[in-house]
Design a protein around this nucleic acid. Sequence first.
DNA 1: TCTGGGGTCCTAGGACCC
DNA 2: TCTGGGGTCCTAGGACCC
Length: 393
Amino acid sequence: MDAFYASVELLRYPELKGQAVVVGGRRDHTPRDLPDGTRRYARLRDYTGRGVVTTSSYAARDLGVFSAMGLMKAALRAPDAILLPADFEAYRRHSRLFKAAVAEVAPVIEDRGIDEIYIDLSEVPGIREPVGHDPLGGIRSVAREIKNSVLKATGLTCSIGITPNKLLSKIASELDKPDGITILMPEDIETRVWPMSVRKINGIGPKAGAKLLALGIETIGQLAAASPAFLLEHFGKSYGAWLHEASHGRDNRPVVTHSEPVSISRETTFEHDLHAVHDRAELGAVFTRLCEQLAGDLQRKGYVGRTVGLKLRFEGFVTVTRDLTLDAPIDGAAELRHAAGLCLKRVDLTKRIRLLGVRIGNLSHRSDVPAATTSRKTARSDGKAAAENLPLF
DNA sequence: TCTGGGGTCCTAGGACCC
DNA sequence: TCTGGGGTCCTAGGACCC
């Protein structure tokens, strides 16, 4: 989907079309309706805090404002940009709508988050039929059908890359954004993919990109020209071999239509860093609330888990995690709070805390686990009681 | 002006078992 | 008498993605 969150907001606030719009921040920047029928929007320049850009409109991107950028930094680049709060409820709703619309045309879909999917088009009727003198006509018309279906269902545009595999499709989908269709065949790799930065490959991030650059490799073509032995030497057996394959556009991963979650988590970054001793009451309350939210998530989704994880991020952005695997799976707030509290005892709490998070893994479906082997205390003995028994927070 | 929240996967060492 | 080979599980950290 094209600039998904920002585009969903434009459906609500159509007068913002074409303007620099940024979605992000945790405070309430909801536009105010004025008596004269106009709206008053928050501007990026008025923002203070630790929020980041979740999505920026294309006009905002032209000003150098991108996802994951701190809002304060974004405000320096685009002080007049309009700031909207994220409304995940609305995005999830539009996500379900667009996925259902695609499924009408091509039902073999792999979920890749709220605004992306892979679609296996192999079995879509007519996909291999030429249209007139165009051998790719069938492909083009399926792509147009998908886009029309999505537009009709949501009012939103998307960009599609059609290629022999997921790796190339991900790259291709970004070549003609927004509202694009890009078809890429193996014979196009040399001319269209090799000139691109290695960073365009899904799986080469900031670290690997910088390391490759330091080795004199900037483009995918240069990566393809590197010897496998060289890549193995610098990146290890697994990643090195993958780099080589990826540079040649080779990828045989299937489109996976169903998957089970591995872990579920809740975390929060504080507006100001907190100290374990000085801000104990506040930390304890947040800790308990995170456990309650996580327990709610587990129970709503019907999972229980055996491995409880604690995450702390300190001033200076140093992150520490502690895990504890229990004998029996749990899904209750009090049990989570207790297990995470045991993890907390293993952390040095001298430095002030920026982020606190609780995670649960080793998941099973609650319905698959005999009741006697799970433990969840009932409502009365929940988080608060557990919190009082712990020396920290 | 320091950098959200929710995830997945990989690596590597140690415990433990046969 | 100076120590095999394989396997699984647990833990911690880190890269990467949406």
